[in-house]
Amino acid sequence: MASRRVLFGTRVTLVLVTLVAILSFATGVINIGVTEVSGPLATYIPEDIERAAGFTGALTGFLMLGSVFGLRRGLRIAWYSTVFLLPVTAIQGLAQSSIFSTPLIALSLLSLPFVLVNYRRFDRNIDLSTTQLAATAALVGTMVYGTAGTYRLREDFANVETLLDAVYYTIVTASTVGYGDAIPTSQQARLFSISVLVLGVASFTLALGSLLGPAIEARFAQALGTMTERQLELLEDHVIVLGYGDLTEPIIDELDGTTPFVVITPDQDAAAKLNARDIAVLSADPSDEDPLHRASIEDARAVVAATNNDANDALAILTAKSLNADIRVVAGATDRENVEKLRRAGADTVISPMVIGGHLLVESALGDENVETVADQLLESSGGSVPGG
């Protein structure tokens, strides 16, 4: 079951979609300047589409890479865009005569079922701030205003005849490129062009600021150990460690390098130290549902709760079991009387290191010479090493 989940998991899906994006871009670059299409659909393709077939593949490839970025963040809108773009890349592959066309068609058709199967993994909505929404609206509004106005005043412009010409003029003006091939020829057109230029510069600046600002803030937050989303996006068949305490460090040492895992702890200092060691960590309360969803508890292999506070562990276990009743939960009890309480909270296995250690010490004090051997065997069976051995 685990191998099947990995085979059809998000990692494989992202690899396939990324390959489609690269091939789509490659075929687009190779076919730049091609004016005729010799593929099996050549007789059915309109002339305008034939002329555009030389470069649309590169554009689709860029759009697909944007979708891959969105998929890595688990965005639902990226899932929709990928489902839409994969058939487009397949059709473009049929329409093009490049040597990359056949692999592009095959990978596009192969990737689509993987994307569809992993629908529930991409369930995050885009969380845009008021500033970002305003910047997007300003940018779109400027483009609509510039395009509609230029097309309406097309008789007052040189080399502006079609709607595409109006879009082209608006983009080169608002972006301050200004090639000079489409120019205003009347006073009214010049005044309108000035308004497009001012609005375009303002909207582009606002859009860049609203997008780059949160990215810079995210970098600072990651450096402080408060957010490691990129480490969490592709986790599956992993272990979730709830909380951080004296018993957690040996658990991390055992998991590190052998099994993918993520730690959820409200301790900011502990989160920063773990993040500095490149350990996936969420700075949040492990008894809350949101961080457990972000840690993909639905696809986790197991949950481990072993801090110095059995009450907090019990609450975190209850939350974990409510979100995934089938997940295996292992708990470490600090006090012996809390063992049964942790079991009732939902823990499948409860281990009390203090009780075990005390029992071994008592047996050794009473003359049992095999105690040290038993302890060594416990370490060896768990993959540990015997000090000095």
Rank of each mutant, 00 (worst) to 15 (best):
A223G: 11
S195D: 03
V281E: 06
D278R: 05
T176K: 13
P184I: 15
L199Q: 02
I171H: 03
D237I: 03
D278S: 00
L234F: 07
T265W: 00
T258S: 09
R190W: 13
Y244E: 05
S210Q: 01
S203A: 09
I194K: 14
L235G: 01
T226H: 11
T173D: 03
A223V: 10
R277K: 14
V201Y: 13
A215P: 04
L206K: 12
A223D: 10
L234T: 11
A189W: 06
D269M: 15
P260W: 00
I183L: 12
T173H: 05
E229M: 11
E289D: 11
Q268N: 10
T185H: 05
Q222S: 12
L212C: 01
I240K: 00
H238R: 02
A174D: 09
I194S: 14
D290R: 10
S195F: 02
Q187H: 13
G245N: 04
R277N: 06
F192V: 06
T173I: 13
S287M: 07
D253Q: 05
E249V: 05
V239T: 05
P260Y: 03
A221Y: 09
D253V: 08
A182L: 12
G245Q: 00
D278Y: 03
S193F: 11
P286H: 07
A218R: 14
A280Y: 03
L232E: 11
V198K: 08
T173K: 07
P214Q: 02
T259W: 00
S186T: 12
Y179M: 13
T248V: 00
N275Y: 15
T185A: 08
V239P: 02
I194D: 15
E254R: 07
T248C: 02
P260D: 08
I240Y: 00
L208Y: 02
I171S: 01
F261C: 04
L212P: 01
K273A: 15
V177C: 02
S195L: 03
A221Q: 12
L235N: 02
S186F: 08
Y179N: 14
T226V: 11
T173M: 07
G178L: 09
G245K: 04
D181H: 04
S283F: 13
I240H: 00
D290Q: 12
A202D: 02
S193R: 15
V263F: 04
R230K: 11
T176S: 14
L234I: 10
T258N: 09
D237V: 07
L255W: 00
I264C: 01
D181F: 04
T265I: 01
V198Q: 02
R190L: 13
L191I: 14
D269F: 15
L191H: 10
P260N: 10
I252D: 01
V196A: 03
S283P: 13
A272N: 13
D181Y: 02
S175L: 12
T185Q: 10
S175I: 10
S193W: 11
I194N: 15
N275Q: 15
T228F: 09
Q268I: 09
F204A: 14
Q231E: 09
R190A: 14
A223S: 12
L191T: 14
T228L: 09
S203F: 05
V241L: 03
D267L: 10
L242T: 02
L234C: 08
I279F: 08
V281Y: 04
G180E: 10
P260M: 06
S203H: 03
L211R: 01
A174G: 06
V263P: 01
D237W: 06
A271N: 07
L206M: 14
